[in-house]
Amino acid sequence: MHNNLRDSLDEKERAFIDQVIAERSSRPGALLGILQAVQNHNPRNYLPMETLHYVAAKTRVPPSQVYSVATFYALFNLQPQGEHTVSICRGTACHTRGSRELLESLVLELGLGQRDDGDSGGADKATLTTADGVFTVRTVACFGQCALAPVVEINHSICGHVNEHTLQRQLKELARESD
């Protein structure tokens, strides 16, 4: 099945990847930047297997290494991401200020079962996306904003002293925008 992977990327996508690779030449370490640019270009902010396959073939980096890099860095997603990303801090300060309860209530609210497929990263390093693709919930180790604990990042903006109510209000607003 993997032999057909290349064919499943469309012409435009391939041209984009070719250009990204050409710009970054073949200097060592270029792979990180290439994967990041390609992921950012993806409308659902992730790296499909076809893409990894194509990048490996084009850069001549062994697929095993491309996969290793893509799964080592939390920055890269191998699953499609939701329209809005909510990152809950699970660092020490936020933990003592109740970030676990915040995470649990959010997971419940959005109907995200904590599935443990063994490779998702476990409970404390979770990335979960709602079935409708609107929200992705992830956990972060520390934002460096511990004075504001518990901290939640919603679409790249930091919210401090978050509680269940303020979080739910914000999510409702976002959900309304997406309708």
């Binding site: 032999n3 490996a56 697929p63 996969y67």
Partner: peptide
């Protein structure tokens, strides 16, 4: 041949062949 590498991190690290497809399907 570079078939193997380690995928994932921490307690979830595994040796993986190519793009984590089954070993028997490895093109390398």
């Amino acid at each position: 041949a570079n078939v193997w590498d380690v995928g994932g991190r921490g307690i979830h690290t595994r040796v993986t062949s190519d793009l984590a497809q089954p070993w028997g399907e490895s093109p390398t």
